[in-house]
């Protein structure tokens, strides 16, 4: 992981401020913006993947059993997945 904006010196800035590490924003945690988190009742899940396609973060992945689960490092808790799930697997619950 490279240096953050608070650490880089002027000599370390890439020419013209270019960022040469593609997609390195994935180091940035957006999960702590969340006030609600998705919880799952997988007994209802038909593994259709609709939640995944409608996630603005692109942070929903299939786990080993094939269920679609949000990565809480990124999940901002918008609740679109819960709202769009055709079988009501997902419930948004207040973060503690």
């Amino acid at each position: 992981m490279g240096k953050s904006e608070n650490e880089l010196t002027w000599k370390e800035i890439e020419v013209g401020g270019i960022v040469t590490e593609p997609g390195n924003a994935s180091q940035y945690k957006t999960g702590d913006w969340r006030s609600q988190k998705p919880t799952y009742d997988f007994s209802k899940c038909i593994k259709c993947g609709i939640c995944q396609i409608f996630c603005p973060e692109g942070c929903i992945n299939q786990n080993e059993e094939g269920y679609f689960v949000a990565d809480l490092f990124y999940c901002k808790g918008c609740g679109i997945c819960a709202h769009e799930c055709p079988t009501f697997v997902i419930t948004m619950k207040e973060e503690e």
Partner: peptide
């Protein structure tokens, strides 16, 4: 030009700079 836009070597040109790093870019 060493940084030419090339799908074989993705890079981002023209990021925005928060106050924590703007001065460094301008001094460079």
């Amino acid at each position: 030009y060493p940084f030419f836009l090339d799908p074989a070597r993705p890079q981002a040109m023209g990021d925005f700079a928060p106050p924590a790093i703007y001065t460094e870019t301008k001094w460079a």
